[in-house]
Amino acid sequence: MHAVAELAGCSTATVSKALNGLPVSAENLRRVYAAAEQLGYVPNLAARSMRQEKTMTLGMVVNFEGHPRSELLYTFQDLIANMESAGYSVLLSIVRNEGLDLDTLLQRFLAHRVDGLFYWQARPSNALAWYERSNIPVIAVGFRDPECAQLPFVTLDGAPAFAAACRDLKALGHRDFAEIVVDRADPLYKLYPRMRGVRWREIRIGHGEQDLRNAVEKLLTGGAAPTVVFAAPPTSTQLLSIAGELGLAVPGDLSVVSYFDLEDAGLFRTPLSAIRTDYDKLGDAVATAMLDALSGRQVGDVMVPDSAHFVPRASTGPARARPAG
């Protein structure tokens, strides 16, 4: 501990606090863990696992590059209810563009001595090695970066619903598809097998509504523009109103599909076609995987079947006719 304190440039009291879940600044927390990592120092985390002490708390890090979407609430409802029924409390932290960095949040959960971690949109982090050394299970949820392949992964099988949407749209004459992607988020269409005879474009925008308006004006008008657009809320709902303001008819000029089925999507002036997902099934599957891991059972990747389907509504229709020549 003295060596860690010297390398980190802080007191042994700060080192003790940082590694035992007591309040320290984010900067000190980073410095302590960096020094401990460099020195190969593993504090009481490993000793705790040997003594089989449990805090009956779990961490949940939600890593969204943008704003967390409302479907998370549906998943949380079932996941947290399952864990609370088993006697656990769940501590939630969301990675934001302007907030604490990912490593610091993961380190804080370690310091709080969580028994396990739910890691949404799992991406590489130096802190993950500490969880592995301490035998603290980490379950990746929704997305897992290839560099995190060691983590068991639970996700929904959205491929059949996506394929069904593409088949329906292709049958309506659509060949040029686009997905609107906000900020640095990963495009969802790339996660699924592509249909032959269909071209995809990626339209990347910022968070502001004006960014979407500019994209519609520049990229979604004219004879060569895509005839169908996929997007997640709130972009998909904003797209309906902006298209109308700019003189684009939905679905006459542009068909729109939402990646998430809002409860009132069928009540819009133009009811919104969507991929409906049973997020409660995801919550149940994630909770089951964590309880298995906490019981010492081997946990592998889980693809939740029959968990999504395409709901066509009035926002999708036949592709507009291409201009002659």
Rank of each mutant, 00 (worst) to 15 (best):
R199C: 10
R199S: 14
R199A: 14
R199H: 13
W200A: 11
W200F: 15
W200K: 11
R201L: 03
R201K: 15
R201M: 11
E202R: 14
E202L: 12
E202K: 15
E202Y: 10
I203D: 00
I203Q: 02
I203W: 01
R204G: 10
R204K: 08
R204D: 01
R204L: 07
R204H: 05
I205P: 04
I205Y: 05
I205E: 00
I205T: 11
I205G: 05
I205M: 09
I205N: 00
G206I: 08
G206H: 10
G206F: 09
H207M: 13
H207Q: 13
H207Y: 12
G208I: 04
G208C: 10
G208R: 14
E209I: 14
E209V: 14
Q210G: 09
Q210H: 15
D211E: 12
L212M: 10
L212T: 08
L212C: 08
L212D: 02
L212N: 07
R213W: 01
R213L: 11
R213E: 12
R213N: 06
N214M: 09
N214G: 11
A215M: 08
A215P: 11
V216D: 01
V216E: 00
V216L: 11
V216Q: 02
V216M: 02
E217M: 11
E217N: 10
E217Q: 13
E217Y: 07
E217V: 12
E217K: 14
K218V: 10
K218C: 06
K218Y: 05
K218T: 13
K218D: 08
L219P: 00
L219I: 00
L219W: 11
L219G: 00
L219Y: 12
L220D: 01
L220C: 03
T221A: 07
T221E: 05
T221R: 15
G222S: 02
G222E: 01
G223T: 09
G223Q: 07
G223V: 07
A224I: 04
A225T: 01
A225K: 04
P226V: 01
P226Y: 09
P226T: 08
P226N: 11
P226C: 04
T227Q: 06
V228E: 04
V228S: 07
V228I: 11
V228A: 13
V229R: 12
V229D: 08
V229Y: 10
V229Q: 09
F230M: 11
A231C: 06
A232M: 10
A232T: 08
A232N: 10
A232W: 08
A232Y: 12
P233W: 02
P233R: 07
P234R: 09
P234Q: 06
P234H: 08
P234V: 04
P234S: 05
P234I: 07
T235S: 05
T235R: 05
T235W: 01
T235E: 01
T235N: 02
T235D: 00
S236G: 02
S236H: 01
S236C: 00
T237K: 13
Q238W: 15
Q238F: 12
Q238S: 14
Q238G: 13
L239N: 03
L239K: 08
L239D: 05
L239S: 06
L240S: 07
L240M: 13
S241G: 12
S241K: 13
S241F: 13
I242N: 03
I242Q: 06
I242R: 09
I242L: 12
A243H: 06
A243M: 02
A243W: 03
A243S: 15
A243P: 06
A243G: 08
A243C: 15
G244S: 15
G244E: 14
G244Q: 15
E245M: 13
E245C: 08
E245P: 07
E245Y: 11
